[in-house]
Design a protein around this nucleic acid. Sequence first.
DNA 1: GTAAACACTTACCCAGGCGTAACCACTTAC
DNA 2: GTAAGTGGTTACGCCTGGGTAAGTGTTTAC
Lengths: 118, 118
Amino acid sequence: MNPTMENCGFATALKAIEGKWKVDILCELGRAARRFGRLRRSIPAVSEKMLAQQLRELEADGLVDRTVHAGQPAKVVYSLTERGAALNVAAAALCRWGEAAERTADRSSAVAPDAVVA
Amino acid sequence: MNPTMENCGFATALKAIEGKWKVDILCELGRAARRFGRLRRSIPAVSEKMLAQQLRELEADGLVDRTVHAGQPAKVVYSLTERGAALNVAAAALCRWGEAAERTADRSSAVAPDAVVA
DNA sequence: GTAAACACTTACCCAGGCGTAACCACTTAC
DNA sequence: GTAAGTGGTTACGCCTGGGTAAGTGTTTAC
């Protein structure tokens, strides 16, 4: 995007992930393929509109597969593509960083653990 | 943030990175420590306001160190903290994913390479 | 005396990302 | 007949993240 980023695929990755619910969706689909309603219940805070929208974007980016099983009523299954799965794997390193960051933040936090309890 | 993300540090990492210029700044500081003006020139599209703001946020998140060298005029040097450097390392995997994604996108693009030329 | 570099801050504005709520079409169950 | 589950779409509105422009205070150079 910017000249400094020309040689860095990170911006591409970030663009695919940005969107308030995409990480949640990717996480959830990383566990198993899911239908729309199940996804919605797995991420209670998301609205149907946003879930549909983010899924469509993820599909357009080739991260998520959308498979319609005909029937009455029709059922739609979402799953990770290879690319989406690869993204999840690549994200694992950042995930670990985040967890480590949370732990050190806990330790250096302004509020001591007992202060929270007391 | 959401129940599904409780066990995933990725949200933490993402929160630290989100902000239009933070990746650029982190990238640039990953090469070497930089002064404000130099950073600004390295990322031409960023405004002074945004650069200052994002640097302050990165500093608050413990990713960037801000060192003031007294003198006339005072000089301020920004550098990555250990944590910031670790983030850069962790991001490398996603970076590679992004580059791979760009390549496959080129191949599977709707417009053939010759079509662009012709 | 004025411009430019140093490193910012402040005030104001706008677009778009996100949220709420309603609507769609079909089927099963009460 | 009405609600609930299947999987969405559409209209509308707000809020915040980011952009523009200008101001701040000191020093050096022309």
